[in-house]
């Protein structure tokens, strides 16, 4: 079964690429809008160095935003999730802030923070923060009460309760949040770069689109997608390693 699945996946990708190439060569699609895969490959070789530099720029900002999201999200989620009054008061606000599209405040953020890395990092952080916060809050609320009682009966201090019981108990949710948050952070950074960037992959892609450079645009899109998928797969791998006790 697995072999057939892999074969089918590979065959489908090759067939799609082949059909695409054929259609472009035969002139069924306008190469101005849909360039052939070979043209994309050639464009990739041409823009390679510059594209990688732009990708590094984007990923750098994403990394900062991501670290901020994870640290703030886990810390705030632990505190809000474990204090009942805070949790009950703040929960609807957090859910609302998670749900509403942050794109609406993007113009204002750019207005206040200007162009450059700061708005990208800020916007990326508010994108990544909320999924992590929501998951961690829920996870802390749902920690098995017996474990908390056991820790109390063994004389755990507040610090020990957080460090030795609550934090390890929510590791699976933190990891799930980290996976979601990463994609959200990258999305936030790219949106800012597209809206008001002067550097980075989002800016580069917008510039290619506005300049009708389809092969370069497709190459850049493929590069960002591949990077994103690779990072998420790496996180999944880490997740499996860290959660061996779950079985």
């Amino acid at each position: 079964m697995t072999l057939r699945v892999r074969a089918l996946q590979l065959a489908s990708i090759l067939a799609a690429l082949g059909a695409w190439e054929g259609a472009a060569r035969a002139g069924w699609v306008d190469p101005l809008f849909v360039p052939a895969p070979t043209a994309v490959a050639i464009a990739f070789a041409r823009i390679g160095g510059a594209a990688l530099a732009a990708l590094a720029d984007t990923l750098g900002k994403t990394a900062v935003a991501y670290v901020l999201s994870v640290v703030l999200g886990v810390a705030a989620g632990l505190v809000v999730g474990s204090v009942r009054l805070l949790r009950e008061v703040l929960n609807p606000f957090v859910i609302a802030l998670y749900g509403i599209p942050k794109i609406l405040v993007l113009p204002w953020i750019v207005l206040v923070l200007g162009f450059g890395a700061a708005p990208a990092i800020f916007y990326g952080t508010i994108h990544g923060l909320f999924p992590i916060l929501v998951l961690v809050m829920g996870a802390v609320r749902d920690v098995d009460r017996t474990l908390v009682t056991v820790a109390r009966s063994y004389g755990a201090t507040t610090w020990q309760l957080y460090w030795k019981v609550l934090l390890p108990a929510i590791v699976p949710s933190v990891l799930a949040g980290m996976r979601l948050g990463l994609v959200f952070c990258l999305l936030g950074v790219l949106v800012v770069e597209m809206f008001a960037g002067v550097r980075g992959m989002g800016y580069v892609m917008s510039a290619f689109a506005n300049g009708f450079q389809a092969p370069e645009l497709f190459a850049a899109t493929a590069l960002v997608s591949a990077a994103s998928i690779a990072i998420v797969l790496a996180l999944d791998h880490l997740n499996e390693k860290l959660s061996h006790w779950r079985g």
Partner: peptide, 20 residues
């Protein structure tokens, strides 16, 4: 309050920490 130097408790639900 809880005093683990004098009293230890065992609960009905074992309450083991699954990550330990």
């Amino acid at each position: 309050g809880p005093d683990p130097r004098r009293v230890a408790t065992v609960f009905q639900d074992a309450g083991l920490f699954p990550w330990r």
